[in-house]
Protein backbone atom coordinates (compact mmCIF):
# COMPACT_ATOMS: atom_id res chain seq x y z
CA UNK A 1 0.00 0.00 0.00
CA UNK A 2 0.96 3.56 -0.43
CA UNK A 3 3.45 4.35 2.41
CA UNK A 4 1.78 7.65 3.26
CA UNK A 5 -1.52 5.80 3.60
CA UNK A 6 0.13 3.29 5.95
CA UNK A 7 1.54 6.12 7.99
CA UNK A 8 -1.90 7.69 8.17
CA UNK A 9 -3.40 4.45 9.41
CA UNK A 10 -0.70 4.07 12.03
CA UNK A 11 -1.14 7.66 13.09
CA UNK A 12 -4.92 7.25 13.34
CA UNK A 13 -4.50 4.05 15.25
CA UNK A 14 -2.23 5.75 17.76
CA UNK A 15 -4.63 8.63 18.05
CA UNK A 16 -7.57 6.31 18.51
CA UNK A 17 -6.01 4.79 21.62
CA UNK A 18 -7.17 7.86 23.44
CA UNK A 19 -10.79 7.39 22.50
CA UNK A 20 -13.53 4.85 22.72
CA UNK A 21 -16.54 4.64 20.57
CA UNK A 22 -19.56 6.08 22.31
CA UNK A 23 -22.03 3.24 22.00
CA UNK A 24 -25.60 4.39 22.14
CA UNK A 25 -28.17 2.41 24.04
CA UNK A 26 -29.92 1.30 20.95
CA UNK A 27 -26.78 -0.42 19.90
CA UNK A 28 -26.80 -2.66 22.96
CA UNK A 29 -29.06 -5.21 21.39
CA UNK A 30 -28.33 -7.98 19.11
CA UNK A 31 -26.36 -11.14 19.01
CA UNK A 32 -24.52 -12.51 21.93
CA UNK A 33 -21.45 -10.67 22.60
CA UNK A 34 -19.16 -9.38 25.16
CA UNK A 35 -21.12 -6.41 26.36
CA UNK A 36 -24.20 -6.20 28.40
CA UNK A 37 -27.20 -5.42 26.33
CA UNK A 38 -30.17 -3.42 27.31
CA UNK A 39 -32.40 -6.46 27.11
CA UNK A 40 -32.51 -9.54 29.29
CA UNK A 41 -30.18 -12.16 28.26
CA UNK A 42 -27.94 -14.93 29.36
CA UNK A 43 -25.27 -13.11 31.17
CA UNK A 44 -24.63 -13.57 34.86
CA UNK A 45 -25.59 -10.00 35.68
CA UNK A 46 -29.00 -9.87 37.39
CA UNK A 47 -31.41 -7.45 35.93
CA UNK A 48 -34.98 -8.01 37.22
CA UNK A 49 -37.69 -10.45 38.22
CA UNK A 50 -40.88 -11.26 36.44
CA UNK A 51 -43.55 -13.87 36.57
CA UNK A 52 -42.95 -17.10 34.82
CA UNK A 53 -44.59 -17.45 31.58
CA UNK A 54 -44.91 -20.64 29.67
CA UNK A 55 -41.95 -21.17 27.54
CA UNK A 56 -39.49 -19.50 29.89
CA UNK A 57 -36.36 -21.38 30.65
CA UNK A 58 -37.02 -23.37 33.79
CA UNK A 59 -33.43 -22.82 34.77
CA UNK A 60 -34.12 -19.17 35.40
CA UNK A 61 -36.86 -19.84 38.01
CA UNK A 62 -35.81 -18.35 41.35
CA UNK A 63 -36.78 -21.19 43.61
CA UNK A 64 -36.10 -19.12 46.72
CA UNK A 65 -38.76 -16.66 45.71
CA UNK A 66 -41.11 -19.54 44.88
CA UNK A 67 -40.51 -20.90 48.36
CA UNK A 68 -41.34 -17.60 50.00
CA UNK A 69 -44.20 -16.51 47.77
CA UNK A 70 -45.39 -19.72 46.18
CA UNK A 71 -45.30 -18.01 42.88
CA UNK A 72 -43.16 -18.94 39.96
CA UNK A 73 -40.85 -16.11 39.38
CA UNK A 74 -38.01 -16.11 37.07
CA UNK A 75 -34.76 -14.08 37.33
CA UNK A 76 -33.88 -11.93 34.41
CA UNK A 77 -30.24 -11.44 33.64
CA UNK A 78 -28.70 -8.77 31.47
CA UNK A 79 -28.24 -9.69 27.89
CA UNK A 80 -24.66 -9.86 26.66
CA UNK A 81 -24.34 -8.12 23.29
CA UNK A 82 -21.53 -7.25 20.91
CA UNK A 83 -21.99 -3.66 19.45
CA UNK A 84 -20.77 -3.15 15.93
CA UNK A 85 -19.34 -0.30 13.94
CA UNK A 86 -19.82 -0.14 10.19
CA UNK A 87 -17.39 2.34 8.76
CA UNK A 88 -18.31 3.44 5.25
CA UNK A 89 -15.49 5.26 3.53
CA UNK A 90 -15.87 7.22 0.30
CA UNK A 91 -13.11 6.01 -2.00
CA UNK A 92 -13.90 8.24 -4.92
CA UNK A 93 -11.23 10.33 -6.63
CA UNK A 94 -12.36 13.46 -4.90
CA UNK A 95 -11.21 12.01 -1.58
CA UNK A 96 -7.67 11.96 -2.91
CA UNK A 97 -7.77 15.51 -4.21
CA UNK A 98 -4.38 16.61 -5.43
CA UNK A 99 -2.38 18.87 -3.19
CA UNK A 100 -4.67 18.16 -0.24
CA UNK A 101 -4.38 15.73 2.73
CA UNK A 102 -7.94 14.49 2.30
CA UNK A 103 -7.04 10.85 1.67
CA UNK A 104 -4.58 10.79 4.54
CA UNK A 105 -7.11 12.41 6.84
CA UNK A 106 -9.77 9.92 5.76
CA UNK A 107 -7.54 6.94 6.59
CA UNK A 108 -6.42 8.55 9.81
CA UNK A 109 -10.00 9.17 10.86
CA UNK A 110 -11.05 5.65 9.85
CA UNK A 111 -8.19 4.15 11.85
CA UNK A 112 -9.09 6.36 14.77
CA UNK A 113 -12.70 5.27 14.73
CA UNK A 114 -11.83 1.62 14.31
CA UNK A 115 -9.37 1.79 17.17
CA UNK A 116 -11.92 3.64 19.28
CA UNK A 117 -14.38 0.87 18.45
CA UNK A 118 -11.83 -1.67 19.60
CA UNK A 119 -11.43 0.28 22.78
CA UNK A 120 -15.20 0.17 23.22
CA UNK A 121 -15.11 -3.58 22.59
CA UNK A 122 -17.12 -3.15 19.42
CA UNK A 123 -16.68 -5.17 16.35
CA UNK A 124 -16.17 -3.18 13.26
CA UNK A 125 -16.28 -3.51 9.56
CA UNK A 126 -14.83 -1.07 7.09
CA UNK A 127 -16.39 -0.59 3.69
CA UNK A 128 -14.90 1.20 0.76
CA UNK A 129 -17.41 2.80 -1.58
CA UNK A 130 -16.01 2.57 -5.03
CA UNK A 131 -17.68 0.47 -7.70
CA UNK A 132 -20.00 -0.88 -5.05
CA UNK A 133 -19.24 -1.31 -1.36
CA UNK A 134 -16.33 -3.64 -0.71
CA UNK A 135 -14.81 -4.67 2.57
CA UNK A 136 -11.35 -3.43 3.27
CA UNK A 137 -8.90 -6.26 3.39
CA UNK A 138 -8.00 -7.23 6.98
CA UNK A 139 -10.53 -4.78 8.36
CA UNK A 140 -11.18 -6.98 11.30
CA UNK A 141 -7.60 -6.54 12.40
CA UNK A 142 -6.00 -3.43 13.68
CA UNK A 143 -6.09 -0.57 11.19
CA UNK A 144 -2.38 -0.76 10.62
CA UNK A 145 -3.01 -4.10 8.96
CA UNK A 146 -5.62 -2.82 6.55
CA UNK A 147 -4.91 -3.16 2.88
CA UNK A 148 -6.30 -2.25 -0.48
CA UNK A 149 -7.04 1.44 -0.43
CA UNK A 150 -7.35 2.87 -3.88
CA UNK A 151 -9.04 6.21 -4.48
CA UNK A 152 -9.73 5.84 -8.15
CA UNK A 153 -13.46 5.45 -8.34
CA UNK A 154 -15.52 7.77 -10.48
CA UNK A 155 -18.80 6.43 -9.02
CA UNK A 156 -20.69 8.62 -6.63
CA UNK A 157 -21.74 7.08 -3.37
CA UNK A 158 -25.37 6.58 -4.31
CA UNK A 159 -24.25 4.66 -7.40
CA UNK A 160 -22.13 2.44 -5.17
CA UNK A 161 -25.22 1.70 -3.08
CA UNK A 162 -27.03 0.73 -6.23
CA UNK A 163 -24.24 -1.45 -7.61
CA UNK A 164 -23.30 -3.38 -4.51
CA UNK A 165 -24.75 -2.24 -1.19
CA UNK A 166 -22.88 -2.99 2.03
CA UNK A 167 -24.12 -5.70 4.30
CA UNK A 168 -24.63 -3.57 7.33
CA UNK A 169 -25.14 -5.13 10.73
CA UNK A 170 -28.49 -4.46 12.33
CA UNK A 171 -28.37 -2.11 15.27
CA UNK A 172 -24.85 -1.27 14.38
CA UNK A 173 -23.27 2.11 14.52
CA UNK A 174 -22.82 3.40 11.02
CA UNK A 175 -20.36 6.10 10.21
CA UNK A 176 -20.17 7.48 6.71
CA UNK A 177 -17.01 9.45 5.96
CA UNK A 178 -17.15 11.34 2.70
CA UNK A 179 -16.78 14.81 1.25
CA UNK A 180 -20.40 14.50 0.08
CA UNK A 181 -19.39 16.29 -3.08
CA UNK A 182 -21.88 14.97 -5.49
CA UNK A 183 -25.34 16.16 -6.31
CA UNK A 184 -27.81 13.89 -4.64
CA UNK A 185 -30.80 14.03 -2.35
CA UNK A 186 -29.21 13.34 1.07
CA UNK A 187 -32.38 11.72 2.35
CA UNK A 188 -32.06 8.88 -0.13
CA UNK A 189 -28.66 7.97 1.21
CA UNK A 190 -29.48 8.60 4.81
CA UNK A 191 -32.64 6.52 4.78
CA UNK A 192 -30.66 3.54 3.58
CA UNK A 193 -28.04 4.12 6.24
CA UNK A 194 -30.50 4.66 9.01
CA UNK A 195 -32.51 1.58 8.19
CA UNK A 196 -31.81 -0.82 11.07
CA UNK A 197 -28.99 1.23 12.47
CA UNK A 198 -28.44 2.05 16.07
CA UNK A 199 -26.86 5.29 15.18
CA UNK A 200 -25.76 6.98 12.02
CA UNK A 201 -23.02 9.53 11.79
CA UNK A 202 -22.21 11.41 8.64
CA UNK A 203 -18.76 12.89 8.75
CA UNK A 204 -18.12 15.33 5.92
CA UNK A 205 -14.40 15.45 5.45
CA UNK A 206 -13.34 18.39 3.30
CA UNK A 207 -10.03 19.93 2.61
CA UNK A 208 -9.38 23.64 2.99
CA UNK A 209 -9.33 23.78 -0.79
CA UNK A 210 -12.95 22.65 -0.66
CA UNK A 211 -14.01 25.09 2.01
CA UNK A 212 -12.21 28.12 0.62
CA UNK A 213 -12.51 29.22 -3.01
CA UNK A 214 -9.36 29.99 -5.01
CA UNK A 215 -7.76 33.40 -4.81
CA UNK A 216 -8.87 36.16 -7.13
CA UNK A 217 -8.12 35.72 -10.76
CA UNK A 218 -8.70 33.40 -13.62
CA UNK A 219 -8.99 29.77 -12.63
CA UNK A 220 -9.39 26.67 -14.71
CA UNK A 221 -11.38 24.29 -12.53
CA UNK A 222 -10.99 20.56 -13.17
CA UNK A 223 -13.50 18.13 -11.72
CA UNK A 224 -11.39 15.45 -10.03
CA UNK A 225 -13.88 12.74 -10.85
CA UNK A 226 -15.32 13.55 -14.24
CA UNK A 227 -12.32 15.52 -15.56
CA UNK A 228 -14.68 18.24 -16.74
CA UNK A 229 -13.11 21.66 -16.99
CA UNK A 230 -14.49 25.13 -16.44
CA UNK A 231 -12.76 28.49 -16.74
CA UNK A 232 -14.00 31.21 -14.46
CA UNK A 233 -12.86 34.48 -13.06
CA UNK A 234 -12.91 34.40 -9.30
CA UNK A 235 -13.55 37.63 -7.55
CA UNK A 236 -15.05 38.54 -4.22
CA UNK A 237 -18.57 38.01 -5.51
CA UNK A 238 -17.85 34.60 -6.93
CA UNK A 239 -16.01 33.58 -3.77
CA UNK A 240 -18.98 34.61 -1.66
CA UNK A 241 -21.32 32.71 -3.94
CA UNK A 242 -19.15 29.63 -3.57
CA UNK A 243 -19.18 29.87 0.20
CA UNK A 244 -22.96 30.27 0.11
CA UNK A 245 -23.29 27.20 -2.08
CA UNK A 246 -21.12 25.17 0.29
CA UNK A 247 -23.11 26.36 3.28
CA UNK A 248 -26.36 25.43 1.56
CA UNK A 249 -24.97 22.04 0.71
CA UNK A 250 -23.95 21.39 4.29
CA UNK A 251 -27.26 22.68 5.49
CA UNK A 252 -29.12 20.24 3.27
CA UNK A 253 -27.15 17.30 4.70
CA UNK A 254 -27.51 18.54 8.23
CA UNK A 255 -31.25 18.90 7.80
CA UNK A 256 -31.52 15.48 6.23
CA UNK A 257 -29.47 13.99 9.06
CA UNK A 258 -31.73 15.53 11.65
CA UNK A 259 -34.75 14.18 9.81
CA UNK A 260 -33.36 10.66 9.92
CA UNK A 261 -31.86 10.79 13.41
CA UNK A 262 -28.36 10.88 12.11
CA UNK A 263 -25.62 13.24 13.23
CA UNK A 264 -23.79 15.44 10.77
CA UNK A 265 -20.23 16.34 11.60
CA UNK A 266 -18.23 18.53 9.20
CA UNK A 267 -14.47 18.24 9.46
CA UNK A 268 -11.53 19.82 7.68
CA UNK A 269 -8.72 17.48 6.74
CA UNK A 270 -5.98 19.95 7.52
CA UNK A 271 -7.44 20.55 10.99
CA UNK A 272 -8.35 16.99 11.90
CA UNK A 273 -6.55 16.93 15.25
CA UNK A 274 -8.25 20.06 16.43
CA UNK A 275 -11.62 18.92 15.10
CA UNK A 276 -11.86 15.75 17.17
CA UNK A 277 -13.82 17.47 19.96
CA UNK A 278 -16.57 17.82 17.37
CA UNK A 279 -16.79 14.04 17.24
CA UNK A 280 -17.02 13.91 21.02
CA UNK A 281 -19.66 16.60 20.91
CA UNK A 282 -21.57 14.54 18.41
CA UNK A 283 -21.31 11.62 20.87
CA UNK A 284 -19.40 9.47 18.46
CA UNK A 285 -16.28 9.29 20.58
CA UNK A 286 -15.63 9.47 24.24
CA UNK A 287 -12.26 9.63 25.93
CA UNK A 288 -11.00 6.16 26.67
Amino acid sequence: MNPPFRESLLSGEALGQRYALAVPQTALAGATGNQLGRRAGTSIDFQDYREYQPGDDLRTIDWNVFARTDRLTIKLFREEVNPHLDLLLDASRSMDLEATPKAAALLRLAALLATAAENARCTHATWLASDGFLRVANDTLLPSAWEGFNFASRQPLDEAFAILPPRLRRLGIRVLVSDLMWPVDPLAILRRLADGAAAVFVVQLLSQADTEPPEHGNVQLVDSESGEEREIFVDATVAAQYRDALARHRESWDTACRQTGARFVPLVAEKLDTSLPALEEAQLLVPA
Binding site: S94, L97, E98, A99, D179, M181, W182, P183, L206, S207, A209, D210, P214, G217, N218, V219, Q220, L221, V222, D223, S224, E225, S226, E228, R230, E231, I232, V238, Q241, Y242, A245, L246, H249
Partner: peptide, 23 residues
Protein backbone atom coordinates in the same frame (compact mmCIF):
# COMPACT_ATOMS: atom_id res chain seq x y z
CA UNK B 1 0.70 36.55 -15.88
CA UNK B 2 -1.65 37.51 -13.08
CA UNK B 3 -4.74 36.80 -15.08
CA UNK B 4 -3.71 33.67 -16.84
CA UNK B 5 -5.86 30.64 -16.02
CA UNK B 6 -4.47 28.75 -13.05
CA UNK B 7 -5.35 25.12 -13.21
CA UNK B 8 -6.97 23.86 -10.08
CA UNK B 9 -8.47 20.47 -9.37
CA UNK B 10 -11.63 20.56 -7.31
CA UNK B 11 -13.61 17.80 -5.67
CA UNK B 12 -16.62 18.61 -7.75
CA UNK B 13 -17.90 21.36 -9.99
CA UNK B 14 -21.32 21.15 -8.34
CA UNK B 15 -20.58 24.10 -6.07
CA UNK B 16 -19.41 26.19 -9.08
CA UNK B 17 -22.53 25.70 -11.13
CA UNK B 18 -23.68 29.26 -10.50
CA UNK B 19 -20.48 30.65 -12.01
CA UNK B 20 -20.57 28.26 -14.93
CA UNK B 21 -24.11 29.23 -15.76
CA UNK B 22 -23.27 32.89 -15.51
CA UNK B 23 -20.32 32.58 -17.89
Amino acid sequence: LRNRYRRRQVSSLMLWEFAVLSR
